[in-house]
């Protein structure tokens, strides 16, 4: 065993962790080197000395102070949390939610108005006098007759305002004539 091996094995020797063969080797080194033996006894006494060091304790108010600090920390965290939020939501989430809410309201209004319009159209379609027919099927003469019948008496006067059909037959001259 050399000096390095000896120094590396000191702790294992003191703590009885050396194998039997190594322990014998270590003991023989100690017998050969009285200085090493002194070193071992000195280290052993140092370890004992460190063991006798008083185990100091924390202040009696330690727990109370700690709990106080934790409570302050909790309050601060709550304050920070409330300060940085809008009704409990983070600003970004609050913006997104309010946007979604606004668009939801807009959609509701749109749906409501379109429903109203459809109801009106359906109502109009259901009344017999306003029943619509395809234009190609409407007989203009019938329509005129119908209009005349439907029109109140006062409105008959308006017929005079209608442009009269002029007879251009006398004015027509054929080219060969």
């Amino acid at each position: 065993m050399n000096r390095y091996q000896f120094e590396d094995s000191i702790s294992d020797y003191i703590e009885n962790k050396l194998s039997l063969s190594k322990r014998k080797e270590f003991d023989s080194y100690l017998n050969e080197n009285p200085e090493a033996k002194n070193m071992i006894s000195s280290i052993e006494s140092n370890v004992e000395l460190l063991n006798t060091l008083p185990k100091s304790k924390v202040n009696k108010k330690f727990n109370a102070q700690l709990l106080k600090k934790i409570n302050i920390l909790k309050k601060e965290n709550n304050r920070k949390y409330n300060k940085g939020t809008i009704l409990g939501f983070a600003p970004m989430h609050a913006t997104i939610l309010s946007g979604l809410f606004a668009s939801l309201i807009f959609l509701c209004i749109q749906l409501y108005t379109s429903k109203k319009m459809t109801e009106n159209v359906n109502y109009a379609n259901q009344t017999p006098e306003n029943k619509m027919e395809p234009v190609d099927k409407i007989n203009i003469a019938d329509l005129d007759e119908q209009n005349r019948l439907n029109t109140p008496k006062d409105s008959i006067k308006h017929d005079s305002l209608k442009p009269q059909k002029k007879d251009f037959s006398s004015k027509i001259h054929l080219v060969n004539d």
Binding site: E7, D8, I10, S11, M39, S42, I43, N46, V47
Partner: peptide, 8 residues
């Protein structure tokens, strides 16, 4: 080991 030697 080194610490114990130095503490000595």
């Amino acid at each position: 080991n080194r610490a114990r030697l130095q503490l000595r």
